[in-house]
Computed example of a mutant assay.
Amino acid sequence: MRIIGIDPGLRITGFGIIDKHKDILTYVTSGVIRTTNADLPSRLGTIFDGVVTLIHEHCPDQAAIEKIFVNVNPQSTLLLGQARGAAICGLVAGRMPIAEYTALQLKQAVVGYGRATKDQVQKMVARLLNLIGLPGTDAADALGIAICHAHSGKLINTLSAFSSILTKKSCRIRLGRFIE
Protein backbone atom coordinates (compact mmCIF):
# COMPACT_ATOMS: atom_id res chain seq x y z
CA MET A 1 0.00 0.00 0.00
CA ARG A 2 1.47 3.36 -1.03
CA ILE A 3 0.20 6.46 0.77
CA ILE A 4 0.71 10.11 -0.15
CA GLY A 5 0.39 12.68 2.61
CA ILE A 6 -0.21 16.37 1.88
CA ASP A 7 0.42 19.36 4.16
CA PRO A 8 -1.28 22.19 2.24
CA GLY A 9 0.05 25.71 2.10
CA LEU A 10 -0.25 28.57 -0.38
CA ARG A 11 3.50 29.25 -0.60
CA ILE A 12 4.76 25.78 0.35
CA THR A 13 2.76 22.56 0.14
CA GLY A 14 4.53 19.62 1.72
CA PHE A 15 4.24 16.08 0.41
CA GLY A 16 5.40 12.74 1.71
CA ILE A 17 5.02 9.28 0.25
CA ILE A 18 5.43 6.06 2.21
CA ASP A 19 4.82 2.39 1.60
CA LYS A 20 3.04 0.21 4.14
CA HIS A 21 3.58 -3.52 4.06
CA LYS A 22 1.86 -5.22 7.00
CA ASP A 23 3.14 -3.18 9.97
CA ILE A 24 6.29 -1.91 8.27
CA LEU A 25 6.45 1.67 6.99
CA THR A 26 9.04 2.53 4.36
CA TYR A 27 10.02 6.00 3.16
CA VAL A 28 9.61 6.58 -0.59
CA THR A 29 10.07 10.33 -1.08
CA SER A 30 9.13 13.71 0.32
CA GLY A 31 9.53 17.38 -0.47
CA VAL A 32 7.60 20.51 -1.19
CA ILE A 33 5.67 22.15 -3.99
CA ARG A 34 6.68 25.82 -4.01
CA THR A 35 4.60 28.53 -5.63
CA THR A 36 5.94 31.82 -6.88
CA ASN A 37 4.59 35.21 -5.85
CA ALA A 38 2.28 35.14 -8.86
CA ASP A 39 -1.46 35.78 -8.74
CA LEU A 40 -3.65 33.44 -6.71
CA PRO A 41 -5.03 31.38 -9.62
CA SER A 42 -1.48 30.68 -10.88
CA ARG A 43 -0.38 29.57 -7.42
CA LEU A 44 -3.37 27.26 -7.07
CA GLY A 45 -2.63 25.84 -10.51
CA THR A 46 0.94 25.11 -9.46
CA ILE A 47 -0.30 23.17 -6.42
CA PHE A 48 -2.83 21.24 -8.51
CA ASP A 49 -0.25 20.40 -11.20
CA GLY A 50 2.32 19.39 -8.59
CA VAL A 51 -0.07 16.94 -6.93
CA VAL A 52 -1.13 15.45 -10.27
CA THR A 53 2.54 15.01 -11.22
CA LEU A 54 3.29 13.26 -7.91
CA ILE A 55 0.40 10.85 -8.47
CA HIS A 56 1.64 10.11 -12.00
CA GLU A 57 5.23 9.53 -10.89
CA HIS A 58 4.60 7.50 -7.72
CA CYS A 59 1.15 5.88 -8.18
CA PRO A 60 -0.06 6.04 -4.58
CA ASP A 61 -3.04 3.94 -3.57
CA GLN A 62 -4.31 6.23 -0.79
CA ALA A 63 -4.14 9.92 0.05
CA ALA A 64 -4.31 11.79 3.32
CA ILE A 65 -4.40 15.55 3.77
CA GLU A 66 -4.27 17.83 6.77
CA LYS A 67 -7.46 19.63 7.76
CA ILE A 68 -7.10 23.33 8.30
CA PHE A 69 -7.87 25.10 11.52
CA VAL A 70 -9.56 28.47 11.88
CA ASN A 71 -6.78 30.99 12.28
CA VAL A 72 -6.86 34.34 14.08
CA ASN A 73 -6.58 35.97 10.66
CA PRO A 74 -9.64 35.04 8.55
CA GLN A 75 -7.89 36.08 5.31
CA SER A 76 -5.03 33.64 5.99
CA THR A 77 -7.51 30.87 6.75
CA LEU A 78 -9.36 31.54 3.50
CA LEU A 79 -6.14 31.46 1.44
CA LEU A 80 -4.99 28.25 3.13
CA GLY A 81 -8.39 26.72 2.41
CA GLN A 82 -8.00 27.54 -1.27
CA ALA A 83 -4.54 25.94 -1.35
CA ARG A 84 -5.98 22.87 0.37
CA GLY A 85 -8.80 22.81 -2.20
CA ALA A 86 -6.30 22.87 -5.08
CA ALA A 87 -4.41 19.93 -3.54
CA ILE A 88 -7.65 18.01 -2.98
CA CYS A 89 -8.69 18.65 -6.61
CA GLY A 90 -5.34 17.21 -7.76
CA LEU A 91 -5.95 14.11 -5.63
CA VAL A 92 -9.53 13.78 -6.90
CA ALA A 93 -8.33 14.17 -10.50
CA GLY A 94 -6.06 11.18 -9.85
CA ARG A 95 -9.04 9.24 -8.45
CA MET A 96 -7.39 9.02 -5.03
CA PRO A 97 -9.46 8.02 -2.03
CA ILE A 98 -8.80 10.82 0.47
CA ALA A 99 -8.75 10.81 4.27
CA GLU A 100 -8.49 14.01 6.31
CA TYR A 101 -6.73 14.47 9.65
CA THR A 102 -6.28 17.42 11.98
CA ALA A 103 -2.87 18.59 13.18
CA LEU A 104 -3.82 17.24 16.61
CA GLN A 105 -4.47 13.76 15.17
CA LEU A 106 -1.18 13.89 13.24
CA LYS A 107 0.81 14.83 16.36
CA GLN A 108 -0.90 12.20 18.50
CA ALA A 109 -0.24 9.48 15.90
CA VAL A 110 3.41 10.41 15.36
CA VAL A 111 4.62 11.84 18.68
CA GLY A 112 1.94 10.63 21.09
CA TYR A 113 1.21 14.16 22.25
CA GLY A 114 -1.29 16.49 20.54
CA ARG A 115 0.64 19.66 21.33
CA ALA A 116 4.01 18.45 20.05
CA THR A 117 6.32 20.98 18.39
CA LYS A 118 7.32 20.87 14.74
CA ASP A 119 10.81 19.85 15.87
CA GLN A 120 9.38 16.86 17.75
CA VAL A 121 7.32 15.83 14.72
CA GLN A 122 10.42 16.02 12.49
CA LYS A 123 12.47 13.87 14.86
CA MET A 124 9.78 11.22 15.30
CA VAL A 125 9.05 11.03 11.56
CA ALA A 126 12.77 10.50 10.95
CA ARG A 127 12.87 7.82 13.65
CA LEU A 128 9.70 6.01 12.49
CA LEU A 129 10.89 5.91 8.87
CA ASN A 130 14.57 5.23 9.67
CA LEU A 131 15.73 8.38 7.88
CA ILE A 132 19.37 9.46 8.08
CA GLY A 133 18.54 13.15 8.41
CA LEU A 134 15.54 15.27 9.36
CA PRO A 135 13.04 16.16 6.66
CA GLY A 136 12.01 19.82 6.36
CA THR A 137 9.07 20.88 8.51
CA ASP A 138 6.50 20.86 5.67
CA ALA A 139 7.70 17.49 4.35
CA ALA A 140 7.76 16.09 7.90
CA ASP A 141 4.16 17.16 8.46
CA ALA A 142 3.15 15.53 5.16
CA LEU A 143 4.98 12.32 6.06
CA GLY A 144 3.31 12.50 9.47
CA ILE A 145 -0.11 12.72 7.81
CA ALA A 146 0.76 9.62 5.75
CA ILE A 147 1.92 7.80 8.91
CA CYS A 148 -1.26 8.85 10.71
CA HIS A 149 -3.31 7.39 7.86
CA ALA A 150 -1.26 4.19 7.80
CA HIS A 151 -2.07 3.64 11.48
CA SER A 152 -5.72 4.65 11.20
CA GLY A 153 -8.75 2.40 11.05
CA LYS A 154 -10.02 4.70 8.29
CA LEU A 155 -7.50 3.05 5.97
CA ILE A 156 -9.39 -0.25 6.06
CA ASN A 157 -12.75 1.43 5.48
CA THR A 158 -11.41 3.53 2.62
CA LEU A 159 -9.77 0.50 1.02
CA SER A 160 -12.97 -1.49 0.93
CA ALA A 161 -14.91 1.45 -0.52
CA PHE A 162 -12.44 2.04 -3.33
CA SER A 163 -10.96 -1.42 -3.89
CA SER A 164 -11.97 -1.45 -7.55
CA ILE A 165 -9.66 1.45 -8.46
CA LEU A 166 -6.65 0.56 -6.33
CA THR A 167 -4.27 -1.07 -8.74
CA LYS A 168 -0.95 0.13 -10.05
CA LYS A 169 -2.10 -0.46 -13.64
CA SER A 170 -5.10 1.80 -13.20
CA CYS A 171 -2.88 4.68 -12.05
CA ARG A 172 -1.63 5.38 -15.56
CA ILE A 173 -5.09 4.92 -17.03
CA ARG A 174 -6.72 7.19 -14.43
CA LEU A 175 -4.24 9.96 -15.16
CA GLY A 176 -4.12 9.47 -18.92
CA ARG A 177 -6.05 12.64 -19.67
CA PHE A 178 -3.55 14.71 -17.68
CA ILE A 179 -0.41 13.06 -19.07
CA GLU A 180 -1.15 13.35 -22.77
Rank of each mutant, 00 (worst) to 15 (best):
T36R: 15
G31R: 03
A38G: 09
T29N: 11
T26F: 10
T77Y: 12
M96W: 09
E66I: 12
I88V: 15
I24S: 13
L25M: 15
I33C: 11
R95Y: 11
I24Y: 11
D61K: 12
Q75R: 15
H58R: 08
D49N: 13
G31C: 03
E57M: 09
N37L: 09
L44W: 06
L91D: 05
E66S: 14
A83C: 05
A83I: 04
I33M: 10
G81E: 12
V52M: 01
D61L: 14
S42R: 10
H58S: 08
I55C: 02
L78I: 14
V32I: 05
T29Q: 07
G81K: 12
T29E: 10
T26N: 13
V32G: 04
P74I: 15
R95L: 09
I55G: 05
S42L: 08
V51G: 03
S42T: 12
P74F: 14
T35W: 03
P41M: 10
P97E: 08
A83G: 06
H56K: 13
G94R: 02
G94L: 01
D39F: 11
V51T: 00
L78D: 06
D49G: 03
I55H: 03
P60Q: 10
L40C: 10
N37V: 06
L44S: 02
H56D: 10
L54E: 01
K67A: 13
V51A: 01
I24K: 15
T36D: 15
G90E: 05
A83T: 01
I98S: 05
R95S: 11
S30H: 07
R95I: 06
I33A: 07
Y101S: 03
T29W: 04
T77H: 10
D49Y: 01
N73A: 11
Q75G: 06
R34A: 04
A64K: 07
V72L: 14
T36G: 15
P97F: 02
Q82I: 06
R43F: 05
A83M: 01
G50T: 07
I65S: 00
T35E: 01
G31T: 04
I68S: 12
Y27F: 15
A63R: 05
A86H: 05
Q82E: 13
G45M: 04
G45K: 04
T35Q: 04
P41Y: 12
G45H: 02
G90H: 00
D23Y: 09
N73L: 11
G85N: 12
G85A: 14
R84Q: 08
C59T: 11
Y101L: 04
L80R: 02
V70C: 09
S42I: 08
T53L: 09
T26E: 14
I55A: 00
T35P: 05
Q62N: 08
L91H: 07
G50R: 04
A93T: 11
G45F: 03
Y101E: 06
Y27A: 14
I33P: 06
I88W: 03
Q82F: 08
V70S: 14
V51H: 05
T46I: 03
V28C: 08
A64M: 12
C59G: 12
V51S: 00
L25P: 07
K67V: 12
L80H: 06
Y27E: 13
L25E: 11
L25C: 14
R43A: 08
L54H: 02
G45S: 09
I98F: 08
Q75N: 14
T46F: 00
A63D: 05
I47D: 03
V32T: 03
N71V: 10
G85W: 08
T36P: 06
L91A: 07
P97W: 00
L80P: 02
G85K: 09
R84Y: 02
A99D: 07
